[in-house]
C-alpha cells in the first residue's frame, strides 16, 4: 500500500512545488517592492530592499486615510456579504428544488446566468441615474444595496449546483416531522451548505472589498471612499508611487486574507451520505 502511493505522491509534490513557486514569486516581488524607496525600485525590482524601511507603510496609510477608508470598506463589505449569503442561498435552494415543476423558477436560473454576461459599462449611466434620483450617491447604504444586487446572480448560480448534492431524504424526513419551509431551510438545509457558503462568503468578501468599478462612480467624496478606491491615489496621470501602492494594498488585503483563513475551516470534508440516511 505504501509503495503504491509513492509515485503519485512524488509527482504531485513536484507539481505542487512548481505551482507554489509560480504563485509565491510575484507575491514576493510585491512584498519587497513595498519596502523600497522610489530610487530603489528604479534601480532594481528584484534586489532586496536595503533596509526594512517602513516609510511606505506609514505614508501609504496616511495618504489613504487608512482608518476612515477601512471603516468604509468594512461597512460596505460585511453587511453586503451577509445579505448575499442569506438571499442567494434561499434563492439557490428554491431553484434547485423546484425547477422541475415551475417553468418560471427554471427560467430564473437562465436569467441569472444571462445577467452575468452584461458588461458593466452599459449599466453605468442608468445606475448612476437611479442613484442620483434616489439621492443615494455617496451613501454607504446605497452602495450595500448596489453591491448586493450586483452579486446575487453569481452567488445564486453557485448555490444551485451545490444544493443538489444535499440529499433530499433529509428534507423529506423533516417534512414528515411537520417542519415548515423556513425552518426546514435554516435548521436543516443551510447547515449542510457550509462548504459552499464559506466559499461564497470568502469570494464575495474579497470581491466587494476590492471593488473599484462601482465604487469609483457611486462614491465620489473622500468621506465615503473605500480602501480600494483610495489606493488609486498612488497613481497619477503621469506618476505612480508603486512602493506606497504595494504597501497600502498589502495592508488592505490583511482583513480579506484573515477572513479567508477563518472561513477555511468550514470548507470541511463532505457530509457522509450514509450518515445522513440514518
Amino acid at each position: 500500500m505504501k509503495k503504491k502511493l509513492k509515485a503519485p505522491y512524488v509527482i504531485s509534490t513536484v507539481f505542487l512545488v512548481l505551482a507554489l513557486i509560480f504563485f509565491i514569486a510575484p507575491i514576493f516581488l510585491a512584498v519587497i517592492t513595498s519596502f523600497k524607496s522610489p530610487m530603489e525600485i528604479a534601480e532594481s525590482i528584484l534586489a532586496l530592499p536595503k533596509s526594512l524601511n517602513l516609510d511606505n507603510y506609514a505614508d501609504g496609510m496616511k495618504k489613504s486615510d487608512f482608518l476612515r477608508s477601512l471603516r468604509n470598506s468594512a461597512t460596505i463589505t460585511f453587511p453586503s456579504v451577509f445579505l448575499i449569503v442569506l438571499f442567494s442561498s434561499m434563492g439557490g435552494y428554491s431553484i434547485a428544488r423546484n425547477s422541475h415543476w415551475s417553468k418560471l423558477i427554471r427560467s430564473m436560473d437562465s436569467l441569472y446566468l444571462a445577467s452575468l454576461m452584461i458588461p458593466f459599462q452599459i449599466l453605468m449611466i442608468p445606475v448612476y441615474k437611479i442613484f442620483k434620483n434616489l439621492g443615494l450617491q455617496n451613501n454607504l447604504m446605497g452602495m450595500i444595496l448596489m453591491l448586493t444586487g450586483y452579486s446575487i446572480a453569481y452567488a445564486t448560480y453557485l448555490y444551485v449546483g451545490f444544493v443538489k448534492s444535499v440529499p433530499r431524504e433529509i428534507e423529506e424526513a423533516a417534512l414528515i416531522d411537520g417542519c415548515g419551509p423556513l425552518q426546514m431551510f435554516f435548521r436543516i438545509v443551510f447547515p449542510l451548505l457550509k462548504p459552499i457558503t464559506a466559499t461564497v462568503a470568502a469570494l464575495h468578501v474579497m470581491w466587494l472589498w476590492n471593488d473599484f468599478q462601482i465604487s469609483i462612480i457611486l462614491l465620489q467624496r473622500d468621506k465615503v471612499r473605500t480602501l480600494t478606491v483610495k489606493q488609486f491615489y498612488f497613481f497619477g496621470q503621469y506618476t505612480a508611487e508603486y512602493g506606497m501602492a504595494f504597501a497600502a494594498s498589502i495592508v488592505a488585503m490583511i482583513p480579506v486574507v484573515l477572513v479567508f483563513i477563518l472561513l477555511q475551516k468550514y470548507i470541511v470534508a463532505g457530509i457522509s451520505a450514509g450518515a445522513v440516511k440514518t
Binding site: 434616489l134 455617496n138 451613501n139 447604504m141 468621506k223
Partner: peptide
C-alpha cells in the same frame, strides 16, 4: 428597510450624517 428608507427623508439624514458633507 433597504429600498425605501433612503428615499424617505428622516432616516436618510441619519445615514448621511456620517457620509455626507
Amino acid at each position: 428597510a433597504c429600498t425605501v428608507t433612503p428615499a424617505s427623508n428622516e432616516p436618510a439624514k441619519e445615514s448621511e450624517k456620517e457620509a455626507e458633507p
